[in-house]
């Protein structure tokens, strides 16, 4: 890579103070991003495809990204947007993923939350706008605590809780268990 381009693509990591290049971001976050895409899409192959697009977007956006609260929130936001687009395309084409019945019957609360959130995104997305879908993913699939959510959305914790309640009222009985 050209020297100038390399410099432009290096950013400062908030925790270590070390700048991160695109390659370093790839090495450090590939594993967690692939996991995140797979949790949203429920399909390994599709998650790998989506991750390619996520990496492409990261590569393009990195020179203009201002590191404030670390990389993971930003990177996961990009990944969530790409995966929600994949789900929209899937719906538009009338493709339905057969949910693994073992997962749906799991007693693991985390697995149940993910499977239910995915079902809501696939079946009831017309009831939610894009921001609400994003919040649903952040809360149930990414599993970000409400304090961090409030920080990343630039609103208060109470406002986050209020938005989640609003979504719950619209989704009704499908709302994943523990909140």
């Amino acid at each position: 890579m050209l020297f100038g381009v390399h410099l432009l693509r290096r950013k400062r990591s908030p925790s270590t103070g070390e700048p991160l290049s695109f390659e370093e971001i790839y090495d450090r976050y590939y594993g967690v991003l692939l996991d995140h895409c797979e949790r949203i899409l429920g399909d390994r192959g599709e998650a790998e495809d989506a991750l390619q697009e996520v990496l492409l977007r990261i590569y393009r956006a990195l020179p203009s990204y201002k590191v404030e609260a670390g990389y993971s929130t930003w990177l996961f936001r990009i990944a969530t947007n790409v995966c929600l687009n994949y789900l929209r395309t899937r719906r538009r084409k009338g493709l339905h993923l057969m949910e693994n019945t073992d997962l749906a019957a799991s007693s693991d609360q985390d697995v149940l939350k993910v499977v239910t959130a995915r079902r809501i995104l696939v079946e009831l997305s017309s009831k939610l706008d894009e921001q609400e879908q994003q919040l649903l993913v952040d809360h149930f699939i990414t599993d970000i605590d409400q304090g961090q959510l409030a920080q990343s959305y630039g609103i208060t914790r109470r406002a986050v809780a209020k938005r989640l309640r609003k979504i719950r009222d619209r989704i009704g009985h499908l709302w994943p268990g523990d909140s």
Partner: peptide, 25 residues
């Protein structure tokens, strides 16, 4: 452990993925 396994998969295809991303971008 799962994150780590995914990461290893990423490292195995690192060169081809990075060159493809750069080409497309």
């Amino acid at each position: 452990e799962r994150f780590e396994q995914n990461k290893q998969q990423g490292l195995e295809q690192r060169q081809s993925t990075l060159s493809r991303i750069r080409r497309l971008a």
